[in-house]
Amino acid sequence: MKNDEFEPKILAFCCHYCAYAAADLAGTMRIQYPPNVRIVRTPCTGRLETEYFLKAFENGADGVLVAGCLEGGCHFTNGNLYARKRVDSMRQMLEEMGLEKERLRMVNVSASMARPLADLILDMVETVRKLGPSPLGKNSRKHRLETAS
């Protein structure tokens, strides 16, 4: 499979108060964004445990996007700042494991930023598309060779 045929599967954890509402607004405004993302609504990005990111990769996600409120705009004051630190620490751990850290990214949007969110999702999809399929997923070369034989 060439990279241009590869459709990344990206898990997006979206905060209920901003990114999820922005994604909803994008739908209302008929703004298109790639269908590669599977959105999981979370009460706040600060609620996310680092294990969730690892579990997503373990189960074959090609990328994980964490979308929280703008810095200073968290409904729970600091949740998105905590999430940023956790994402940064997990990016380091991904490198330790031998996985590209670019597969995990945090972005900040407000509920009204439907267009910027669509652009951020597009950028994430293109980044992961360039990286290629996750070596842990069903699209990986290793997995395809194993199932073909």
């Binding site: 031998g98 070596p135 842990l136």
Partner: peptide, 17 residues
């Protein structure tokens, strides 16, 4: 919690290798 994180990380790293 750390058992969960380290176990996941070991599973991923071992599969990559």
């Amino acid at each position: 919690r750390e058992v969960g994180i380290i176990s996941s990380a070991l599973r991923i790293a071992s599969r990559l290798q």
